[in-house]
Design a protein around this nucleic acid. Structure first.
Lengths: 327, 327
DNA sequence: TTGTAAGCGTTATCAA
DNA sequence: TTGATAACGCTTACAA
């Protein structure tokens, strides 16, 4: 790789001048600029970002920490983040945390060692010291804490809507799948659903606990749910994976969907419309959330201040084939 | 962040000595080492990777370029790569290329500018100059070129197996979905399937072209396929997304699966076992492929040479619910 | 309008 | 066994 020195020599000027045309800073004569640009072209020069980063004590790198890219909800977020970052020439250092505190700390540390200028994280503990001691801006994505910048969906409302739709469409023996305890959005949904169901006349509600959001857990959880509550006529799944697993199991048990049992998921991952019947779900605009988080972080980085620190995006009911029609 | 200088001062030694204990290079007295380590602890010092990278002209960063993380096949690859890299303390700069040559070039360039020590890429054109002019090792993942280091699955064999299973299980009017022209593995599968089907007695074969591997395309493609070939009793899908879409459409058209029509997908993404009936498919060990690619790249980086440049992983038939039982 | 030189935080060479 | 110091490639005073 050519260096600024070689460009300078080639163009017959000093490195300072080259730097000036590179960064469009300070005066430089049109003719000199031309000469320099020619040299740059000729040598295929492209500045060493590492040297820049060292001098400026800031890079064009962002740390992105997600629980598990293998869980289909997160790629949407990641893609949203990437697309927005890309537009402003930031690059992503990416890591899977597995919701493991230790891994998170490790990643944060290497982010810092690499001079990242900001971090986007989907963590269960936004108040962890790893974050609060950071001197660079952090945006929490899909997870939130009261005083920290964050982008998330209205889980509580999502839970409410799911419960309302379930009841409105005729289910009376409802099972709520409660997602992992540590995962805030999962608890919000649960609370929202309970809120509605507790006061719904003639409705009985049972609860099943999910320990994680993994595929295996989803499949296992579906089996257990129908063993424990074979009579249920409506299930609010903890997310779409769980919802799909539930649908699968119900079909396997020869239940008619949605006649015998209705199912509502959460997230609206691409898979949801691909299963048959397509899964009714509470949509979270994941891609958009990713973009918004990136946008917010960029504002922090480039302006050092920002109006809106918490961005809550609306959820919506996607009526599909696992819920009954009603007018 | 504390610097090496501060550590040196705190420990009452020179930066050279601190560097020595940091890198375990050269002699250093036990007592001095202790003092230094104490200072490091005390200041929570952690070396600036950017400065290191500048001096050494190499970092602990790897560039990872995938077509689209939103396509459920790629997160598996990515996760495999990440897990292996993580074990050797490499970090990933990640980008989506959308199979766009220009985006790829852009990314490769910034990878270089950031001193990455290696690149893993899933590209349609491993022979592009962007790659061949690189001075750092590149491993191609899921795509291959004759003379370049790569990790991929045996697509040809996959196609053959799919065709054999289809015929063996009784389909006679078979439609092959041919994936995007530029995507090598898609063509390999197609060729493999054709190879078997052309010489299969009593079998008619039709071809449908897929322009891309997107969700929308999959859904649209499924509709078109059944419009054009309503009588087909066996479909070799271009991948699992397409397979799931086909299954969806078949069910919607009240076809019995697998009695009326058999479907075989490719990839074995997690979704495949979640649909109902679960999708029979040709499995590619994506996670393992990711790990292998990482492993290979690390060998290149750390040893500068390597025995095996091309690693082909075996595919296998996953018999599930969209194919008929047979003994 | 341009050039010289210091400095960003490391590592490695050389001398002590 | 340790310390001074140049160098990595860049940007930014400051001087010219």
């Amino acid at each position: 790789m050519a260096t600024i020195k070689e460009v300078a020599k080639q163009a017959g000027v000093s490195v300072a001048t080259v730097s000036r045309v590179l960064n469009e800073t300070g005066y430089v004569h049109e003719d000199t600029r031309a000469k320099v640009n020619q040299a740059i072209q000729h040598l295929h020069y492209t500045p060493n970002e590492v040297a820049r980063s060292l001098f400026k004590r800031k890079s064009k790198l962002i740390g992105l920490l997600l629980p598990d890219i293998t869980n289909p909800y997160f790629p949407e977020l990641a893609r949203g983040v990437e697309d927005r970052m890309q537009e402003s020439n930031y690059r992503l250092i990416f890591g899977n945390s597995d919701e493991d505190e230790h891994k998170e700390r490790d990643y944060i540390q290497t982010f810092v060692q690499n001079n990242v200028v900001g971090v986007i994280s989907s963590t269960n503990d936004p108040n962890a010291v790893s974050y609060s001691k950071l001197k660079i801006p952090v945006v929490f994505l899909d997870r939130t804490s009261d005083d920290k910048p964050s982008v998330f969906a209205d889980g509580r409302e999502g839970g409410r809507i799911a419960a309302q739709e379930m009841v409105r469409r005729g289910s009376r023996g409802i099972v709520i799948q409660r997602g992992p305890q540590q995962v805030r959005p999962a608890q919000d949904r649960f609370l929202g659903a309970m809120e509605v169901l507790e006061s719904a006349p003639g409705v009985t509600v049972d609860i099943m606990q999910n320990a994680s959001f993994s595929y295996n857990e989803a499949v296992q959880g579906a089996k257990e749910l129908f063993e424990k509550f074979p009579q249920t006529d409506g299930i609010i799944a903890s997310n779409d994976i769980a919802g799909a697993a539930l649908l699968h199991e119900a079909l396997r048990l020869n239940k008619r969907i949605p006649e015998d049992v209705q199912i509502i998921g959460f997230d609206d991952i691409p898979l949801s419309s691909l299963v048959y019947p397509p899964l009714s779900t509470i949509r979270q605009p994941a891609y958009e959330m990713g973009r918004e988080a990136a946008e917010l972080l960029i504002q922090f980085i480039e302006n050092n201040l920002v109006a809106q620190h918490k961005i809550q995006l609306p959820v919506s009911f996607m009526e599909r084939g696992t819920t009954r029609k009603v007018d």
